[in-house]
Design a binder for these strands. Structure first.
Lengths: 211, 211
DNA sequence: CGTGCGATGTATCGGACCGATACATCGCGG
DNA sequence: CCGCGATGTATCGGTCCGATACATCGCACG
């Protein structure tokens, strides 16, 4: 998940770790707290080792002049490579079970602007299915095991059930919008102010058959 | 968190791993999926090593008769010890920062029936504060960085903001109920008399006092 | 009658991610 | 000029997950 998020963000512009964390927090603030450095830096190293991102020099060419000043360790800016973009496209298009849990869905959704419509639809429907299952589970508990549970536990289930129903409705709306070919829920018509977003993978390209 | 949940459940009745997982899923279904065995069994071992739970024999005393039949490894029933109950009481009463995140709050809330009113109030207010902060963060992003984000990301933030506002309202209700001394939100009239105030083990269950 | 299959049940392993911590630099106000 | 908060990189131990393996039990179906 982290890998996907980093690749996605670096596609917008090169960044260093600290910045990445902030942007991540802004983009995913709705679904999870800020990422920990204990995850971020090792992941960056892993991505670099895999060749999906590279370091970009901060100081211009004449950096040799002052390299030995208390071992100046400036910030390290990373940028995505061509292989990294391929990797991102692959990750964003293939949907495993983890694509539909809270965090996984949130990350995928946050990059829907870079996802083709068919995949968007598939993910939204998968998520809806998952939430419907959770909802049914909660209904079962409330209907069948209510007398075994105390009032607080029941209240917790009710609140959870409510959240499920609400999310299903939200997803229904998004799915309807996708099917009608319109932009997200945003009520304004097309021609969003300035440049909206380019959709790098327009529908109908690099189709990977499933094994 | 898992430790707290296990201790809490075993306080209701002795159980083996599989059962524990199911009860956990029923009690916490609103906030998280079923616990993984990869967490459960190591944690059980840890709790046992610490002396907070012990094994209870399944087969009655004459188990020596058939011990060597393909190394019959029956299910292992655990029960909580007196030290375990102390440990639970300590964990449930002290509130660290992790008490207010989604999972931590959910687990604490699920055991509110075993928590005294002052602690309940403290946890509810801490949770409210945390959600309010998240809400403000989302509002900031929506107000200040809206033009930097695509329509899908914005929609995600809106949905998250909505969920925050709803949860704050829910918490307000619960807090008001706590302050008024009434039982949770449950709308049923209190036929059980007015002493719902601070009786950690509510009436009608858990008859097992110390042997 | 047996046989296969889904539910029950215990267990381990590698990996993802977190929280605490450490340490260095920079800009700015007192 | 000194301290202090923001910026910035990095590691370590611990918690929890997902996949996997393996054994038993009850029962439906041929």
């Amino acid at each position: 998940m982290l890998e996907l998020a980093i690749l996605g963000l670096l596609q917008e512009s090169p960044m260093h770790g600290y910045e990445l964390r902030k942007e991540l927090a802004a983009k995913l603030g709705a679904i999870r707290a800020a990422i920990s450095y204990g995850s971020l830096y090792p992941t960056l190293r892993r991505l670099q080792a895999a060749g999906w991102i590279t370091e970009a020099a901060t100081t211009p060419a004449t950096a040799e002049e002052v390299p030995a000043l208390t071992s100046r360790r400036g910030r390290v800016v990373y940028e995505i490579t061509a292989e990294g973009k391929e990797r991102f496209a692959k990750l964003i298009a293939q949907a495993g079970p983890e694509t539909y849990d809270d965090t996984g869905f949130g990350v995928h959704f946050a990059f829907f602007a870079r996802t083709d419509q068919a995949t968007r639809l598939r993910i939204l429907e998968g998520r809806r299915r998952k939430i419907e299952e959770r909802r049914e589970g909660l209904r079962d508990v409330l209907a069948r095991a209510a007398e075994r549970l105390d009032a607080y536990t029941l209240e917790l289930q009710r609140h959870g059930l409510d959240a499920c129903e609400r999310e299903v409705r939200w997803l229904e709306e998004l799915i309807a919008n996708e099917r009608s070919g319109r932009a997200p829920t945003v009520p304004q018509p097309g021609t969003a102010g300035g440049r909206a977003n380019e959709s790098p993978p327009p529908p109908g390209e690099s189709r990977k058959e499933r094994p």
